[in-house]
Amino acid sequence: EETISAVHAFPETLIYTKSFLSFVDKVNEAGKGVIQIDVRGGPEAIGMFQQPDAVRDGIVDMVYTPGSFYGGALPEKDAMVASNLTAVETRANGGIALIDQIHQEKMGLKYLGWFDSGVCYNLWTRNEPKFDAAGNLEVEGLKLRGNNVYNAFFTNYLGAQVIDLPTGEVYSALQRGVVDATGWTQIGLIDLKWNEFLNYRIEPCFFSTDLGVIVNNEKWNSLSDDAKKILQEVAIQHEKDSVEALRAKRDEDFAALDAAGMKVVSLEGEAKASYLAAAREKTWERMKEVMSDQPGGTGNYDRLIELFYDLGAD
């Protein structure tokens, strides 16, 4: 029986970690006598932002983390950030295979699977959002909390005053009015208790989560074919299962928020289209810029966009 060690980027109580742990359970069930995953813990075992290097260097064999935590080494993760597809479609059309190939080339990592996809981000505000005559969102006077996932969009397109705050400080910042708006995924707001202060959700949602399982390449290659097969098959199954599970969780969260008085405001028509276009294009711009400085250049750029974005879907 072979064993691989694993760590996850977020605390154990977070929904995304629970999803990863259920993947581990499935592997350990299917892999009895062949392959087992030994979870060593979360950010208390290896720092959140040090995990990508740790798996690259073989300190740990497997890591579950957002691609954005190693975006400096792999700017192509922005294709997933800006995506409006899920792992199911991009597994079928070869998108994930391309991402795997890029991981192998640039970082010596096997990209096993894109989990918890199909969850997108909304802007959440305390006060009723205002719109200009053309129906575009007005951000003047909005104290918007940002971070490096969405700053390209918020700053470069919306022209918002972004206040960079670590997640742990957002609760008290909202409480005191240091910020009055933030981006966040569709789910998880209730767990963070931010809904105590935020009253509006702005639609449409944009972006996608980019959480994935990466495995040290040497370790991967040393595994038996049986072990590889089990890991890969369970991962592909979990890509599918997690999309469904998180959609159900989103509906549940939205219902709970609705019941608690969260109001939904939506951009329409032209304004909606240009909002979404800005979200993806500013992010692609950033991706292209960083790619062009790296070996390999922007060779995969067009192909990535084609595989990870369906223009017809918006």
Binding site: G47, M48, F49, Q50, A54, D57, G58, I59, P166, E169
Partner: peptide
């Protein structure tokens, strides 16, 4: 190689706003 990771961890522990 674990020692290199140790330095990386220290970097993460120190560059914290808190």
């Amino acid at each position: 190689r674990g020692v290199m990771q140790l330095l990386n961890n220290g970097l993460g522990a120190l560059t914290k706003y808190a």
